[in-house]
C-alpha cells in the first residue's frame, strides 16, 4: 500500500513537471504577451497543483498538508491576479504606443 501511494505521488509530480514544461514552451512559442500569459497562468498553475498534491500524499502530519494547501492557495490567487495585472499593464502600454490590441 505505501508503494502504491509512492507511485501515485511520483506520477503526480511527473505530470506537474510536464505542465511546467508546457508553460515554458508556451512562453517561448506563443506570438504575443497575452497568449503567453495564458500559458503561464494555466499550465504552471496546474503544474504546481499536481506537484503539491504529490508531495502532500506522502506528508507525515496534518500540519504539513495544511501548509502545502496554503502554499497552493496563495500561489493560485497570486497567479490569477498577477496575470490580470500584467495583461492590464500590457494593454495600457499598447494604448500608449497607439496600438489598439483588439
Amino acid at each position: 500500500m505505501p508503494d502504491l501511494i509512492t507511485f501515485i505521488s511520483a506520477a503526480l509530480i511527473a505530470a506537474g513537471a510536464v505542465f511546467f514544461i508546457a508553460g515554458t514552451v508556451g512562453l517561448l512559442r506563443f506570438p504575443d504577451t497575452y497568449c503567453r500569459l495564458h500559458a503561464l497562468t494555466k499550465a504552471d498553475g496546474l503544474g504546481l497543483a499536481l506537484i503539491a498534491l504529490g508531495i502532500a500524499l506522502t506528508a507525515s502530519s496534518f500540519g504539513e498538508v495544511f501548509r502545502i494547501a496554503l502554499i497552493w492557495f496563495f500561489v493560485a490567487v497570486a497567479s490569477a491576479t498577477g496575470g490580470h495585472l500584467i495583461a492590464t499593464h500590457a494593454r495600457r502600454v499598447d494604448r500608449a504606443e497607439g496600438k489598439e490590441g483588439s
Binding site: 509530480i13 506537474g16 511546467f20 508553460g23 515554458t24 512562453l27 504577451t33 503567453r36 500569459l37 503561464l40 497562468t41 504552471d44 498553475g45 503544474g47 504546481l48 506537484i51 503539491a52 508531495i55 502545502i68 502554499i71 500561489v75 497570486a78 497567479s79 498577477g82 496575470g83 500584467i86 499593464h89 500590457a90 502600454v93
Partner: peptide, 23 residues
C-alpha cells in the same frame, strides 16, 4: 523587450521556485 515579459518571468520564478522548494 517589453516590461510585461519581465513581469511574467518574475511570476514564473515565483511559481517554479515554490514547486522546487516543495520537492
Amino acid at each position: 523587450p517589453r516590461p510585461a515579459e519581465r513581469m511574467m518571468a518574475a511570476q514564473l520564478f515565483g511559481t517554479a521556485a515554490v514547486a522546487i522548494l516543495l520537492i
